[in-house]
Design a protein around this nucleic acid. Structure first.
Lengths: 366, 366
DNA sequence: CTGAAAGCGCTAACAC
DNA sequence: GTGTTAGCGCTTTCAG
C-alpha cells in the first residue's frame, strides 16, 4: 500500500472506505483516525481537521458492525410482534421504533402472525444478531422455554400487552379484567341484561363456543372480567352468548352470527379486540342491524376509524402508546444497568360513544 | 486455557458461549467447530456429533455479527417508512418483513414521519449498520442527495410507493394518475359534475388552496389525474374545490370544511389518502351529511374498515401487498447479482361500494 | 499528542 | 478430516 500525503489525490476505492483508507489519506495512524471519528481521546486540532477532511472526501461511513464486535453492544433492540396490521400493534411498533431511536437504538422487527414456531425462530435470529434487548408480544402460553432468561444469552426482555406468568418476566400490560368489567357495567347501566362476548383468539381452528385452553393473558383477563361483572350483579350468562373464533374472516363472522341466532339473543356484544369489532360491524351490516339501536357494541382497543364512523364505537381503550413507551424505557433501563425490572399494568378507560343503545324505558339518564 | 476432554464437565461461562468454547468442550479446533456449525466442508460424523453436543450443552448461539464481518453481508434489509400507522404503510411493512424473512433476511425499520431530516439520519444509520439493501418510502422531493447511489456505499435501493425522478432510482409504485382518473370518471358516470379534491400532504403548514411545490410523486400523479379526467370531459374545476392540508387533524378537517362551504360546493369529493378519507367522514358526521347520499366520496388505499362501515367507502385501491413483495424481490435480486433493477408501476383498481350517490334523474343504470 | 499491536468471534485458504 | 493461521473493521491499552 503506497503512502499518501495529506493532499494526495483521491484514490479510487472499489469497496466502501474503511477507517484505514481515511487514516492513510489523512497521513495518520488508524488509532488517530479512530480517535477523531469516535470523538474521544485527544488529537491536535490540525490533525482532526485532516482526518475529518479525508473522511468527507472518501464518503466514509463507519462500520457499526465492526464497532459492535468490539463493544459487545449493537444499539439494536428486537421487537417481536404478534400481528402487524392490527391497529393496536401498529401503534406499538411506531412508538417502540420512535422512542428507541430517541434513545439511540434501532429496531429489528419480526412478525409472528401469532405462530409459536415463527416466534421461536424470531427470537433465535435476534439473539444471533446480538440485539441488546427484546420486546416481545408473546403469542403462546405453552412451550415457551425459549423465552426463559436462561436461554436468552443474558439479554433483557420485556413482554408487551401480555404476561407469561410461569416465567416471571417483566411485562407491560393493560388492566384488561377491569376494562371488561367496565364495559359490562356500562351495558348494564343502559338497561342491558343479555350481554354476549365474542372472542378473537389466534391459534384455534374455526369457531367454538367452548373456551379454548391456553389463551393469552390479555384475552383471558377480558373473559374473566366479563364473567365477573355479570356475576357481580347476579346476571346469568347463557353459554350461547359466548363464542370464540380463530380467524378474522369467516369464523369471526360465524361466531357473531351464532350468538345472534341464539334463542334469547343478546342485545349487547362485547368484542374482544379490533378484529372482532370489525366482524360484529360486518355481520350487523349484512343483517341490516343498526349498531347502537338494534344491537349494542363495545370493543377493545381504539382504532382511528372507531370514533369517526357512524355510529361511532364505544371502546375500552388500551393505552398502547404509553405501554410501548414504558416497555422501551424499562428495557433500556435493564440494558444500561439498573435492574428495576418491574412489570406494570396500566389502566384502561372506557371511551363512551354511540354504539350502546339506552334500553331503559323512561328517561333515567345518568 | 486448559484443554477439556470430550465429556468434560460443563464450564461455567459468564459471557455467552463462543465458538471457541464449543470447540474446546468438544475437543476440536475452532475451524472444525465452525465447519459443523456452519454446515460446510467435511467432518467425520462422530466429530460432528461431539460438536453439536457441546454446542447444545453450552446453549451456543452463533454470533451473526462476527459472521457478517467476515462475509461482508448482514442478511438485513433497511426499511424506511414515511408514516407508520397509515394503513397502507403498515401493510407494506408486514409484507416486507414477512417476505424478507422468507428470503432469509431480517428487517431494520425506521419511521420518518415524513420528515426529511429523520429520513437522512435513518439512511445513514442503516448504512452504518451495513444493511444489504434499502427499501425507502421517500418523504421529500428535494435535498435528496443522500439517496443518490454514489452516497449509498454501493448498496441497492428500491423506492416504494413514490418515485424520485431526478435520481432515476428503481421504484415500485401504483398507477396513481390512472387511479384518480378512474375515480373521477366514476363520479361523472353517476351524474356528478361538481367534483372536489382534498389532498393530504405532509410537510406543509395548516391548509391551503394553492398546490404546494415539491409534492411527492404519488400525490402529484393523483392530482394530475384528477385535473386530466375533469378536462377530458370538459368539466371546469372551480379552484375552491381543491384544497391541501398538512396534518391529519385540524387542517384536514378545515380543508374539507372549506370546500363544502364554497358557493357551488361539490357533490363529490376525492380524498387523496386514508387520512383524508377519515377527515371527510369526520366532517360529514359533524355536519349530519350522509355519505353516499348528501355527499359522495371516493378514497385512496383500501383500509380494513372501508368495506365494513355503513355506507362502505368506494376506493381506488393501491395493490400495496404486491408492491411490497415486488420491492423486496427486486431488492434481493439486486443484492444477489442480477441488476435487473427495473421500476414497476402496478395497476390500481376502483373498488365500487356505497359512498357514491347516483345523481342521474332517471334509471339510467349502467 | 500519536503510533503499534492486540483482539472482538468468526470463516476460509492452506497445510498436513 | 482436521488444525493453523490470517484477517474482516474497529477500538483501546500501552509505549513513546
Amino acid at each position: 500500500m503506497k503512502q499518501l500525503g495529506n493532499d494526495a489525490p483521491l484514490p479510487i476505492l472499489s469497496a466502501p472506505a474503511t477507517i484505514n483508507d481515511v487514516a492513510q489519506l489523512a497521513g495518520v495512524s488508524r488509532a488517530t483516525a479512530s480517535r477523531v471519528l469516535g470523538d474521544y481521546g485527544t488529537v491536535k486540532a490540525e490533525t482532526r481537521t485532516m482526518v475529518l477532511g479525508a473522511a468527507a472526501r472518501l464518503g466514509y461511513v463507519a462500520n457499526v458492525i465492526a464497532r459492535s464486535m468490539r463493544a459487545g453492544t449493537t444499539q439494536t433492540l428486537g421487537l417481536v410482534i404478534a400481528e402487524i396490521g392490527l391497529s393496536v400493534f401498529d401503534t406499538a411498533m411506531r412508538v417502540v421504533i420512535d422512542s428507541a431511536r430517541a434513545h439511540g437504538y434501532q429496531v429489528l422487527v419480526s412478525n409472528t402472525n401469532e405462530e409459536l414456531e415463527a416466534e421461536r425462530t424470531a427470537i433465535r435470529v435476534m439473539l444471533e444478531k446480538q440485539v441488546d434487548g427484546l420486546i416481545v408480544v408473546p403469542s403462546s402460553v405453552t412451550d415457551l422455554d425459549f423465552l426463559n432468561p436462561k436461554n436468552l444469552q443474558g439479554r433483557p426482555i420485556v413482554l408487551l400487552d401480555r404476561t407469561l406468568a410461569p416465567l416471571g418476566l417483566t411485562s407491560v400490560t393493560g388492566a384488561n379484567r377491569q376494562g371488561a368489567m367496565d364495559a359490562v357495567a356500562h351495558f348494564i347501566e343502559n338497561g342491558h341484561t343479555r350481554i354476549g362476548l365474542v372472542v378473537f383468539t389466534a391459534n384455534i381452528e374455526g369457531q367454538t363456543p367452548e373456551q379454548p385452553a391456553g389463551l393469552i393473558s390479555s384475552i383471558n383477563d377480558r373473559i374473566a372480567g366479563y364473567y365477573e361483572a355479570m356475576a357481580a350483579v347476579g346476571l346469568a350468562v347463557n353459554p350461547a352468548w359466548v363464542c370464540f373464533a380463530g380467524d378474522a374472516d369467516v369464523s369471526a363472522s360465524a361466531a357473531v352470527e351464532g350468538i345472534l341466532d341464539a334463542a334469547d339473543a343478546p342485545t349487547a356484544l362485547l368484542a374482544s379486540n379490533g378484529n372482532m369489532s370489525l366482524a360484529v360491524l360486518k355481520v350487523a351490516k349484512a343483517r341490516g342491524l343498526l349498531i347502537g339501536r338494534d344491537l349494542s357494541l363495545v370493543g377493545f382497543d381504539d382504532a382511528p376509524w372507531a370514533s369517526i364512523i357512524t355510529p361511532s364505537i364505544t371502546v375500552v381503550n388500551l393505552p398502547i402508546e404509553e405501554m410501548a413507551r414504558v416497555a422501551v424505557e424499562n428495557l433500556i433501563g435493564q440494558i444500561s444497568a439498573a435492574p428495576d425490572a418491574r412489570s406494570s399494568e396500566l389502566p384502561m378507560n372506557l371511551v363512551l360513544r354511540e354504539s350502546v343503545a339506552d334500553l331503559r324505558t323512561a328517561s333515567t339518564r345518568k
